[in-house]
Amino acid sequence: MKLHNRMKIELMSLPENVGLARIAVAAFASECNLDVGELEEIKVAVSEAVSNAIIHGYQKDANGVVTLTATLQDNVLEIIVEDKGRGIADLEQALEPGSADDPERMGLGFVFMKSFMDEVNVESEPGRGTRVRMIKKIPKNPQAEN
């Protein structure tokens, strides 16, 4: 496997950093020669994972650190979003649609991640944090010119 590129970002757990994470991933993925729809889907998946870390993981405590790692290896884009927040007690239930603990929320974050990315794995330990690993297969040659 050829490693094309890698970045790691640590962000304070602030709502305005969701946009930052999204745009950093977009800039990172833009060398993959995707079209707007494909890139938009990756951005939505990242937004959902980072929002979850901030809202649920750290329950909006700004001192938490959200870590985002993006790796481009061969034709595979891997994105990992991690927090050291409160974790998920019932992971199976959380992954189901409509599992929101707040009636105002839709509980579709994981559903979006799973439908927009080719693979999504979630590891979580109550009281220790959550790690969401997402894989997207890049159909085109990563370093192709547009």
């Binding site: 020669n33 995707l34 079209d35 707007v36 729809g37 890139l39 938009e40 889907e41 939505v44 547009n146």
Partner: peptide, 11 residues
């Protein structure tokens, strides 16, 4: 929605 509106290149 994401796809139909955006068949174009990112650039």
């Amino acid at each position: 929605y994401l796809r139909d509106n955006n068949p174009i290149r990112v650039s």
